[in-house]
């Protein structure tokens, strides 16, 4: 019984039910509110929240992160190749494929 209750799907369902019960109990206890135009706006001392003056751009970082991600993936795949495929040509072909994939992903075309 203990193992059933502690298994993730059952525990998730139990806690979802518990959370829903707390949510409904809180809603039953809360006073009925009124809808107003500014009720759901972010609090900024009653003022309108201005958009940020500058938007940070992460495009350059994306290319770098993609390169490192694919390099890590390639290293993982090549280091865990089965013994029958330990030829250098297989590794080289795979790296060429990864390189072409990076080029397509970053430039969008061949």
């Amino acid at each position: 019984m203990k193992y059933i209750l502690l298994s993730p799907p059952v525990a998730l369902c139990l806690f979802l039910a518990l959370t829903y019960g707390i949510y409904k109990l809180g809603g039953a206890l809360a006073a009925p509110g009124e809808e107003h135009p500014g009720k759901h706006l972010p609090y900024a001392c009653g003022e309108d929240l201005l958009p940020p003056e500058a938007q940070l751009a992460y495009h350059a970082f994306f290319h770098l992160a993609l390169l490192f991600g694919l390099l890590h993936l390639a290293a993982l795949v090549l280091s865990t190749l089965p013994p029958a495929f330990t030829s250098n040509y297989v590794a080289l072909a795979y790296l060429v494929g990864v390189g072409i994939s990076v080029f397509v992903l970053t430039k969008g075309e061949l």
């Binding site: 009720k39 609090y43 009653g46």
Partner: peptide
């Protein structure tokens, strides 16, 4: 100047 701000803050307080 503060009238609308005051009203909005009041609206953002949950009832009662």
């Amino acid at each position: 100047q503060s009238r609308d701000r005051l009203r909005r803050i009041y609206e953002q307080i949950p009832a009662p």
